[in-house]
Every structure is written in structure tokens, then in C-alpha cells.
Design a protein around this nucleic acid. Sequence first.
DNA 1: CTAAGTAAGTTGGACAGTACAACTAAGTGT
DNA 2: ACACTTAGTTGTACTGTCCAACTTACTTAG
Lengths: 246, 246
Amino acid sequence: MAGRQGQGGGAGEKGGGLDFPRPLTTVDIVIFTIRQEALHVLLVRRGHAEGEPFPDAFALPGGFVDVARDADLAACARRKLVEKTGVVSPYLEQLGSWGSATRDPRGWSATHAYFALIPASAAEAALAADARWFALDATGVKPKLAFDHAEILQAAVQRLRSKVEYTSLPAFLMPEEFTLPELQRTYEIVLDRALEKSAFRTRMLSADLIEPIAKMRKGPNRPAQLYRLKAAAAPVYFARTFNAPE
Amino acid sequence: MAGRQGQGGGAGEKGGGLDFPRPLTTVDIVIFTIRQEALHVLLVRRGHAEGEPFPDAFALPGGFVDVARDADLAACARRKLVEKTGVVSPYLEQLGSWGSATRDPRGWSATHAYFALIPASAAEAALAADARWFALDATGVKPKLAFDHAEILQAAVQRLRSKVEYTSLPAFLMPEEFTLPELQRTYEIVLDRALEKSAFRTRMLSADLIEPIAKMRKGPNRPAQLYRLKAAAAPVYFARTFNAPE
DNA sequence: CTAAGTAAGTTGGACAGTACAACTAAGTGT
DNA sequence: ACACTTAGTTGTACTGTCCAACTTACTTAG
């Protein structure tokens, strides 16, 4: 077996090597949003039909790849996201895949996990539309999740945090119009630590990411300049991370 | 379908939703190494047995997940890497997954791609042990690769390059003992651009990554201090990227 | 009406790490 | 002896963060 190669490996190979057990294949999506000054994930409560594992448990939204309908994995993820939240074009990135013999009691299964960032308004709409949906604090204590979804969620939070250190990802969590302090607060919520006000301003304004609009946000105090994402909404990579105080 | 959730979606669902077509599931590994002052990938030439797609084409090493032997995806990737290169514990990271209806003529298939970094000596050993193995320049023109492996390879190069900007990953491409200029050259090969000598030194020496050993490398010129990786060989994340000249 | 309070946004000095170039050190080949 | 090469150091300029103090604009209490 030492020299096995290409797509020809595996047990019970015969006539092309296709007639042996295939893993179950699913796609799951970790949908992040900001609610109540905290990072939340959208979860669905599972049903309790005959044969369904983890009845009534919370789970990441997702499901089996539909070989007949989904051209590829990304299309499958987009389909599920749109079907479920109605969000048109949020940030959607592949997170990784988890596969093992034991993660699903029904057999060897592999899931392709994606993570999405949506603004609070879209999250509220999704929650209002379907009573099975819940939003939970992504970093706090959570109820037992179905499958290995707790592990996937933890990986998603980690990935999000590490990317937020040097990218503009939190901008995708913002409403269309926002102030700089609001954007900074979103960063701080995701990173769970305070950032320097003036360094944050310098960086955000010198990055080719947001642009001021001719409006101000009236608040209880001094009014604040409103900004919006520039047309090219691709994430920006900064040359260095924010300071990480000891 | 708007409210579909959990692991219960899909076409032709019946009695738990398991009796509909499952995608083929494979694991492929992009193995990088440095050869001839260039970043190389290890590829295998496919066979031309009956029913094998892409006969005689170059492909990433990999194969079907073996539901009977592989506890999980990472174990499957490790197994394939060890079986094929004999490398014990190189750097191995999940790259992502590619799945579509068309990437394999035999049907809907999804591959879980990993990428590995191995020192040149391990690569030479693997090449010498099996005549079907080849090492090709990862960034230059390549022959047509089987499946969508060209796309996966390109993604791997991109991921490697972007991580090299702010991590110590190239250290895993080095032999056990190396000099600082050799390490710098490895960075430059991967990034395909020159780096500042003194900034590179400052960064590498202040990072808790390598340690000098009581030996010097005798070369044609002035001898150079030898270093080795510190015990904790986890990748180091730097606070900022190397300068990217316009 | 005034004073205190709060948050937005600016300013300036200290500091860290990189950019760049010039330098010294130690070996080679002619 | 000399030029040549590469290892490694030194020093100045510069960029962007860190941190604290400041101004600006608005609200609320008295």
C-alpha cells in the first residue's frame, strides 16, 4: 500500500474503486452577528423525528449536500444561507472540514464548514421568520450542541478572532451606515479587548476601506461622522496586528 | 424548504435521509519542499488501469477516505503522508475542501485538501523510493494536473505565501541545522521577493523560534552561525508583515 | 443660564520595529 | 597582496502605534 496514489486508494476496491462505503457529506454554516453588544451565533433547534440524531439539540444550520441540485460546495453553502436567512451577499468563507467515524451516529460522516458574517438586521429578520432559530453568545457558555458542532464553533470563533487582528472583517457585521466608534466597538466585541482610539482611527482611515458620507449620527453627545463600506467590499489586510497588551 | 435545518435536508429523503446518493470522498495532500532554490510540490503520476480517470496525468498524492481504517480526516491525511514519504511529524495543516459535480468524471466528489511542509532531505528520499513521484516547481508552468488539482495547488501556494508573511512556517522547510541567511533565502524563495537583511535578523532573533548552536557553517566565505528550531516547534505569528515594496 | 458630564475627534511626544545604506569581519581565488 | 564574496553590525530616517492630554459639541441637572 506504500505506493498507493491518486484517487484509487481505499478498501474493497474493485472496478474503479467506487463500490465501497462512502461517508455522509454535509455542509454546515457558522453565522456570526452582533447582538446585545456581544458576538452571537445563529443556531437551529433540531427536530425529534424517528431516526434523527440529537433530537431537540441546538445545531449549526446546514444539511446534506444535494448531489442533484448543488453544483459545488460553495453553491451549496450559499443556497443554505439564502434559503435560511434571506441574506443576499454577506461575507462567506470556507472554515474547514470535519470528518470522523464517530461524529454522526448514523455512520462515517464529513462536514464542510463555512462561516458567514451578517449585520444585526439580517439576523433579527431570520430569527423573527422561524421560531426554531436561536442566537447565542458565541463566546459564553453554550448548551450541548449536536454532533461536533461545539468544536466547529470554537474553531470559527478562533479563526474570526485571528483574522480580525489584521483584516477588515468586522466591517461585514456593520449596518450600511456606521460611525467609527461603532466600528471600533465591533472590533472590541469580537476581540474581547479594548483598542486604542487614535491608532484605530489612523488605521481605518488610511485603509482604502470605508468612506465618509455627508451625514452625521445624532447621539446623546457630540454628533459623529457616518461612514459606509467602499464599493470594493473585499476584506482589507493590514500590515500589522493591533497591539496585544500583556 | 425555507425552514429546512439540521442534517435532515437533501433530495429523496426517507427514513432518516440516508438513502440518497453520497459524494465520493477523498483526501489530497499538497507537499511542499525546497529544491534547486525553488518551491517544489510533490506529485504522483497516475496509472492507466481500466476505469481510472486522468490516466498518466500528474496528480496530488491522496486517495479515498477509508471508512474502515481512518478514524478521522486528519488521521487519514497523516496516514497517507507517512505511507508515502515516511516523514514523521512535518507541518500538516488543513487547506480546505473542494467538491463539485464535475471535478471527477465518476460522479459528485469532494476532496479534503491538506498541505504539508517537509525538508528537502525527506523529499529526496520520497522521490528516490518510488519512480512514480515527481517534484515540480510550484509556481512555474506545470503540466495539466488531474481533477481540479491545479486549482488546489494554486490555493495552497497562495495560503503558504500569505502565511509566510507573518509566520515562521518556512522554518519547517529547513534541515535540522541552518544559518540565518539560509532561512532568509527560504523566505525569499517562497515569497518570491527580496527581504531586508537586518530587519529579518532582528525579527527572527527576537522571536522565540530558533536558537544558536555551538557550531558554525564553513562556507566559501565567512563562516556562519548555525541555528536550529527551538523545542516548541509551533509556528510563530509575527505582529506585522514584511515590507511589501510597491 | 450656567456648570458638570459625556462621547467624538485631534494633537503631540515617546517608542518600537522596519528601511536603507554603509560599514566591518572572515573567508576564498588569482 | 589584492579583489571578491558573504556574514553580520551599526546608524540614521521614517512609519505607525501607544498613551495621555486636549478641544469640540451636545445633554442634563440645578
